[in-house]
């Protein structure tokens, strides 16, 4: 890294921010982070972020849930203690399968939903009592902040950011 200095450019409009991100990308600067009070459509694309794979994980969690449900109903109702309950055929899992479908469905959804959310928390590093990583409280209300690392090019970066319509540009020491 060399320097631990970063530059914070503030914007007060998401359209201006998007154009600024494109300008900075075009000038081949690496954007460390952008802080927004709300989701800005197209920001991930403008920054060139890789698409999320969370849907793929959810699909696999769903299959896991389905497998658990099949294993559980088969073990409990067919293998372990196959009773005659109201004349339901407990000779094989398939014969009694329609009765298990609601469980299979719900466990598929349960696993897919909850494990996906937990995955999201882990990947985003969010948990209770976590210290907020907010460089400026205004970014949760009405300001957008772009953070760029400074590598001995402070003047150049400041000039570039000033051109993009930033309302405030600060150079701060990051630890």
């Amino acid at each position: 890294m060399g320097s631990s200095k970063v530059i914070h450019a503030f914007y007060n409009d998401d359209e201006v921010l998007l154009d600024a991100v494109k300008t900075v990308k075009a000038a081949h600067h690496h954007i460390e982070e952008v802080f927004c009070p709300f989701p800005v459509h197209g920001l991930d694309k403008a920054m060139g972020l890789a698409p999320t794979r969370i849907a793929i994980t959810a699909f696999m969690y769903g299959i896991t849930g389905l497998s658990v449900a099949i294993w559980m109903t088969n073990y409990m109702m067919i293998q372990d203690w196959p009773q005659d309950i109201g004349g339901k055929p407990s000779f094989s899992w398939l014969e009694n399968m329609p009765a298990f479908v609601p469980i299979m469905f719900e466990l598929t959804v349960f696993f897919a939903a909850h494990l996906m959310v937990i995955t999201f928390y882990m990947r985003s590093k969010i948990w209770p009592f976590k210290k907020a990583e907010n460089p400026d409280p205004r970014t949760t209300d009405d300001h957008f902040l772009m953070e760029i690392h400074v590598h001995n090019n402070e003047e150049e970066l400041t000039a570039l950011l000033a051109k993009t319509g930033a309302v405030e540009i600060n150079v701060v020491e990051k630890h």
């Binding site: 998401d14 359209e15 998007l18 800005v40 459509h41 197209g42 694309k45």
Partner: peptide, 14 residues
């Protein structure tokens, strides 16, 4: 649709 990125099919309107 926001995540379809085909040639010539990118919305210029944000």
């Amino acid at each position: 649709y926001f995540n379809i990125e085909h040639e010539g099919e990118e919305s210029t309107d944000h």
